[in-house]
């Protein structure tokens, strides 16, 4: 039996965007200039985790699901270039990227049901836009599947998934029966870079596109939140730069200044 792994991947604004290019206006976030979006970093790690399982397992297929309104195709195809087999875009004006995860959960859940034979879903621990850290948990609850979060190692064996989870001071190994949802963290390690062959192959793939109608989602998800305000946080710090004749002198003056202020 082919092991069917779904990876969820979100297209997000590049979190490395310099603050000077990061704008918040009219309750929306935008970037100045032409800074391209990226695949959410943890989702690249999810692709990496899926490919490692595929390599260990042999008979496995990796389908990538991404939900949104607009996609930069060369960006969202990166998982294919890394080695994923298929890409399904859940694309509809209704899938607006909002702070409310309800729609993304509904769309991803419906798509996983539509695929039908999914054994394992691997997601990133959180998306670096709204930092919700809950879509995969919502998908697991909607499907009634087992879940394990913040993995640094994911293995599939005999109808179960074993996940080594990162803890604040250590780690633990958990086991869940398939089908299951797993999220991964940066501790999994650096995701592989796409090679030339992968990039060329990805270029030829036409992603499947599913809309609200294809997913039978009309009017099913009622929103959980209404956005009241979105703004840049105020920072009230008065910074005092300590200077000296040279770096060492500045270091000494820093110690003296901190003592003067009774910080030390």
């Amino acid at each position: 039996m082919t092991l069917h792994i779904v990876v969820t991947a979100k297209q997000v604004l590049d979190p490395e965007t310099p603050l000077s290019a990061f704008n918040v206006a009219d309750n929306a976030v935008s970037t100045a200039g032409n800074i391209p979006p990226v695949v959410n970093g943890y989702d690249e790690q999810a692709v990496e985790a899926a490919l490692r399982i595929k390599e260990a397992h042999g008979d496995a297929k990796v389908t990538v699901l991404s939900c949104g309104t607009d996609f930069a195709l060369d960006v969202i195809k990166k998982p294919l270039a890394m080695g994923a087999d298929e890409l399904v875009l859940l694309q509809d004006a209704a899938f607006e990227n909002s702070i409310d995860p309800t729609m993304a959960v509904a769309a991803l859940t419906a798509a996983i049901r539509k695929l039908g034979d999914v054994d394992l879903v691997i997601s990133g621990r959180q998306a670096s836009d709204w930092d919700n850290a809950q879509v995969p948990l919502g998908v697991a609850e909607s499907l009634g599947w087992a879940v394990a979060t913040i993995g640094r190692k994911v293995d599939v064996q005999d109808g179960t998934v074993r996940v080594e989870r990162v803890l604040p001071d250590g780690h633990e190994t958990v086991e869940a029966p398939l089908p299951a949802v797993v999220t991964v963290s940066n501790e999994l390690g650096t995701p592989r870079y796409p090679n030339m062959r992968g990039i060329m192959a990805a270029r030829r793939v036409q992603p499947t596109v599913w809309t609200v109608a294809d997913l039978d989602l009309d009017g099913t998800a009622s929103p959980a939140f209404e956005l009241v305000s979105l703004k840049k946080p105020e920072r009230a710090v008065q910074t005092e730069m300590i200077t000296g004749d040279d770096d060492a002198d500045a270091g000494r003056k820093l110690a003296l200044r901190l003592r003067e202020e009774r910080v030390l």
Binding site: R235, V237, T239, E240, D246, A248, G251, L254, A255
Partner: peptide
């Protein structure tokens, strides 16, 4: 430096040893 109360713009390899030495003296 937009978030810090006190800052030193310098190479830590120079700043830190001098800072620690001064601290030793103070303490």
């Amino acid at each position: 430096f937009k978030e810090a109360r006190f800052g030193v713009a310098g190479d830590w390899q120079k700043v830190l040893p001098a800072f620690m030495e001064q601290l030793h003296e103070l303490m």
